[in-house]
Write a protein that binds this DNA or RNA. Structure first.
Length: 1000
RNA sequence: GCCCAGGUGGCGGAAUUGGUAGACGCGCUGGAUUCAAAAUCCAGUUCUUUCGGGAGUGUGGGUUCGAUUCCCACCCUGGGUACCA
């Protein structure tokens, strides 16, 4: 019997399902291994061949580790809250839960067909109330937590309240904004206007509950705050920056305005430092780590206060170079800086306001793209230099961003390129503070020079001067050393329906948490999934009685963002049915961190950062022992589509010399579409006109014209001339095989091609071109795993995807190549079968050659799997099968072992042959074969002999021949004499069992 | 601009520690088998050549007995990004 993959795969998938073959239990007797795939969002389109790449890779490792004796957790689930389902609900009125359920079912079916060893008993879905109950619970825990800088971890808010009750803020070192108290409405508080954030136990005790609550909200890790958002009235929603183009929504082109909204935020900034330092411990690609480092954006420097000269205000600036403070010759504020209005002098007011107005009208993108253009305006005001007391002019300019630091910079034109350009443009002084450097042409931005003209800093280097400057600033109370982060707190509210509801209700606008025992708070039904007319989120549509729980004056109407559920899902897989906790401490301890995480790099600063944050937080609060979620991560590359192209010849006009009947020739637009083969297009493209393919086209055009213009009769049409252009068009890849177009299929594909004309190449075949681009419906280049499972089987597809190349790299999909892997499996199959299809296996002990092939394969496969080189394993298996086929080997010992080696890649195949070879148990249960070096030992080694590093000939010598004898044997050989050409070698290098190199 | 990854035959790629460049597969060429096709098998396939050789891993240089691998400069492709004080 031939290798009948359809029957075999269906058979084993059924058996695995019925016997629950991949069920995993906690087993203390075995070491654990946790392999995880990045959570998929089940879209309506289903999977294409690019999606399972990482799943196959993880499946191979999971199976390999199982053979190696590990207890392997390899779960799968779905990130099932999200926008596409909500969008569909808005359009159709269908509840997103239904859409989601259908899509998940389709995904699951596709995944199951690929033979993955997921333990589906552990499946989780973020939109399942039993799951999001715990997402809500974690939110509540964040709300009930503050960050203690002393212990460097999150603690229960009650410890903070207790501290306040005993000693006020004295001795409390919390993570809190230095200026937090400025937003309090101090008139209502008993401390008076000189309050600076410090309070005594007595102060605390006299506060009203609402006031206490307000103060605590500045400490909580989940808090409400007013945040600027991009509000689009027409769409009734908040938009992300990249959803806006030229101040209008990308979708629909509606106006977008900045609007303050009360939103939940998570204080991820408290973890900035730990998120940074934690990167040292984890084995991730450097590019991802760098992205996270940049995102967190830690910079060390100082806050410096510049008092205004003729005004009672002051400007605070953040600088990373306090050592250059004596080089300051002006100050620049962001145009939207609060102070601008107050300090601008009357004579400058009009110009300044115009500039502010202009920059506010520009989008973030525009302001960023105008890097080369230096613009700005003088406010007319002066500040005082903190050390010299000199007047420093205050300017405003686009290049200073309101959102970073304090929205103001002290400009040091001699040490900063942008400041330098600004000073040049507006003729401001460029005082030099660097010894031996010329700063008249460009700024000196390195940190190597000794300072001059810098009072007490003169003569110091960068490090010393930085410390000294900060020390002096602190002495004079005009500044302090500060570490600044680019990282912002994470906005955690979304004005959407299809997400986790917050377990929050309001009494007089003060938020309260539901009790944990009331969770989950499920989504109430709504009549429409759109925002209300007043711009409230969709949940505001739910009537009081529709809410499963309703407390206070109203419930929270926002829902959580997409990353809420995915920030902790890897924990739930450990204990998916737990009704007391997200995960039990015992299970969390057993499974621990994810040992191998495989997924795309697109989540570098979103999901991967938030997961780390939540893990650290849950660790702090004592729920898990580890504080990094993913200890090793591999980022799979994208599989790109290989689009096929046809080339349409568009005749612009044509002449038939001598043709006079009928004044006007019919328009070429009335002709059928003309498709030319790739070589014709290339000829035309290369020369600007046709050269070698000219005759092909000419003949065809003549025929065409004759058909279209019957009046031509027997006229000579050899002098027909035409002007034309050729346009490449995408064609469905299913109509193309091996770059040859299926012409009949193409004609049926679109109505306008029914009568199309084809000008083939010299071999009478129509050749298509191709282009590598993303797999997408619009390019007709999507290849689905289902189609390939039908045609070649899941095992072939699995092996082929791995065989394509390194998992991390992006690479084009080529359906052609899959036949090679399929043939390999059939070849392997034939090794154990007779020509008539009966099983044929030989129980004799294997020969030396057979054992050598086998053990070479064991060695290579094992090594490569350990270093996660999935693609080379396939080659190694092919080599072994090729060698064994050449030896006509069907020894049981060899085949059995080879089947275990191949089983991670082709599990159905391995299981079936294993059974056919007479085994009663499953191949899954077999221990991984051990490599024995003794089978690879050879008596002889074939030395490559090179001259000056170029390999010239080979010479077989005894493997244990000493170095000197090798040298002697080589030099005495006739071949060596030829290359030496009478000269004596200058030097001879012999590396035993490696190489001989002769220098002449 | 800066950061990261990468650049090897017609194509995907291999070469693990500096030691035979092009494994393995696709495609292509020729042959066997076949009424024919499919499938299978065999041989060939980096370029060049006067058939002795010669050149060759983006380009140029360097270190070395020996470099795809290490160092320097540059070019190109892909990804990321922040005018970040």
């Amino acid at each position: 019997m031939e290798y009948n993959f359809r029957e075999i795969e269906a058979k084993w998938q059924k058996i695995w399902k019925e016997t629950d073959a991949y069920k995993v239990d906690e087993d203390e007797s075995k070491e654990k291994f946790y392999v995880l795939d990045m959570f998929p969002y089940p879209s309506g389109a289903g999977l294409h061949v690019g999606h399972p790449l990482g799943y196959i890779a993880s499946d191979v490792i999971a199976r390999y580790k199982t053979h190696k004796g590990y207890n392997v957790l390899h779960p799968m689930g779905f990130d099932s809250f999200g926008l596409p389902a909500e969008q569909y609900a808005i359009q159709t009125g269908q509840h997103p839960a239904i859409t989601t359920k259908d899509n998940v079912a389709r995904y699951k079916e596709q995944l199951q067909r690929m033979g993955f060893n997921y333990d589906w008993n552990r499946e989780v879905r973020t939109s399942d109330p039993e799951y999001y109950r715990w997402t809500q619970w974690i939110f509540s825990l964040l709300y009930e937590s503050w960050y203690n800088n002393k212990s460097q971890k999150a603690e229960n808010i009650s410890t903070l309240v207790k501290a306040f009750e005993e000693n006020g803020t004295y001795g409390v070192e919390a993570f809190i904004d230095r200026d937090w108290y400025k937003s309090l409405n101090l008139e209502d508080f008993p401390f008076g206007e000189y309050f600076s954030g410090e309070l005594t136990a007595t102060d605390w005790k006299v506060l009203k509950p609402a006031q206490k609550e307000e103060i605590l909200s500045h400490y909580r890790l989940a808090y409400l705050s007013e945040t600027w958002v991009n509000w689009c009235e027409a769409l009734g929603t908040v938009l992300a920056n990249d959803e806006i183009k030229d101040g209008l929504s990308e979708r629909g082109g509606h106006p977008v305005e900045q609007r303050l909204m009360k939103q939940w935020s998570l204080r991820i900034t408290a973890y900035a430092d730990r998120l940074l330092s934690g990167l040292e411990e984890i084995d991730w690609q450097d590019s991802i780590k760098d992205m996270q480092r940049n995102w967190i954006g830690k910079s060390k420097g100082a806050m410096v206060r510049f008092m205004m000269n003729n005004h009672h205000g002051h400007v605070d600036v953040f600088t990373t170079r306090p050592d250059t403070i004596f080089g300051v010759s002006f100050i620049v504020l962001a145009p939207e800086h609060d102070l601008v209005k107050q300090i601008t002098t009357e004579d400058r007011r009009e110009t300044v306001e115009a500039y502010v107005k202009r920059s506010m009208a520009k989008t973030e993108r525009e302001r960023q793209s105008e890097v080369k253009m230096v613009t700005g305006e003088f406010t007319g005001a002066f500040a005082k230099h903190p050390f010299t007391g000199d007047n420093v002019p205050v300017w405003i300019a686009d290049y200073v961003l309101a959102g970073y630091g304090t929205g103001a910079v002290m400009a040091v034109p001699s040490g900063d390129e942008r400041d330098h350009a600004f000073a040049k443009a507006f003729d401001l002084p460029i005082p030099n503070i660097f010894e031996g450097k010329d700063v008249s042409k460009e700024a000196y931005t390195e940190k190597e020079a000794i300072l001059i003209n810098s009072a007490f800093l003169s003569g110091m280097n960068y490090l010393k001067a930085t410390d000294a400057a900060i020390y002096e600033l602190e002495e004079k109370r005009l500044g302090y050393g500060k570490i600044n982060y680019r990282l912002r707190d994470a906005i955690f509210s979304r004005q959407r329906y299809w997400g986790e509801p917050f377990p929050v209700y309001y009494v007089d606008d003060i938020p309260h948490l539901l009790n944990d025992s009331q969770l989950p708070l499920t989504l109430p039904p709504v009549d429409k999934y759109l925002p209300t007319e007043t711009g409230e989120p969709p949940l505001a549509r739910a009537k009081k009685e529709d809410w499963p729980i309703f407390e206070g004056n109203r419930m929270e109407h926002n829902t959580m963002p997409g990353w809420a559920g995915s920030s902790w899902y890897f924990l739930r897989y450990m204990d998916p049915k737990n009704t007391d906790l997200p995960v039990s401490p015992e299970r969390a301890k057993y499974w621990g961190t994810v040992d191998l995480y495989i997924g795309g790099a697109e989540h570098a600063t979103g999901h991967l950062l938030y997961s780390r944050f939540w893990t650290k937080f849950l660790h702090d609060r004592g729920y898990i022992e580890f504080d990094e979620p993913f200890s090793k991560m591999i980022n799979q590359g994208m599989i790109l589509g290989r689009s096929s192209l046809v080339y349409r010849l568009d005749i612009l006009n044509y002449q038939v010399p001598g043709f006079t009947s009928g004044e006007n020739l019919p328009s070429p637009r009335s002709f059928p579409e003309i498709m030319v083969s790739k070589e014709i297009y290339e000829d035309w493209k290369k020369h600007g006109h046709l050269t070698e393919t000219r005759q092909l086209v000419r003949h065809k055009l003549q025929t065409l014209l004759r058909e279209q213009l019957e009046e031509l009769g027997s006229m000579d049409t050899s002098n027909v001339t035409a002007e034309f252009t050729i346009t490449p068009l995408h064609v469905d890849v299913n109509l193309v095989e091996n770059d040859i177009l299926n012409i009949e299929g193409f004609k049926q594909w679109r109505r306008q091609y029914n009568d199309a004309y084809f000008i083939a190449g010299v071999d009478d075949k129509y050749h298509c071109g191709y282009e590598i681009e993303k797999m997408s419906k619009r390019w007709y280049n999507v290849v689905t795993p289902d189609a390939l499972c039908d045609q070649y089987g899941a095992d072939t597809l699995r092996m082929y995807e791995m065989f394509l190349g390194p998992v991390e790299q992006s690479k084009p999909w080529d359906t052609q190549g899959i036949s090679g892997v399929h043939n390999f499996l059939r070849k392997f199959w034939r090794l154990a079968h007779n020509g008539d299809g009966s099983v044929s296996v030989n129980d004799d002990s294997p020969s030396k050659k057979e054992l050598k092939s086998l053990h070479q394969c064991i060695k290579k496969v094992t090594n490569d799997l350990e270093r996660l080189s999935w693609n080379t394993v396939v080659s190694a298996l092919m080599i072994a099968v090729n060698e064994l086929t050449a030896l006509k080997s069907n020894k049981r010992e060899v085949l059995d072992t080879l089947l275990i080696l191949i089983s991670p890649y082709a599990p159905h195949f391995a299981e079936e042959l294993w059974e056919r070879l007479g085994h009663e148990d499953s191949v899954l249960k077999q221990p991984w074969p051990e490599f024995n070096p003794k089978y690879l030992e050879e008596d002889e080694f074939e030395y490559p002999v090179s001259f000056n590093g170029k390999m010239r000939f080979k010479m077989a010598l005894a493997a244990d021949l000493p170095r000197e004898d090798v040298e002697k044997a080589v030099l005495e050989s006739a071949q060596a004499a030829k290359y030496l050409d009478g000269k004596s070698p200058k030097k001879v290098i012999v590396v035993p069992k490696k190489i001989v190199n002769i220098v002449v």
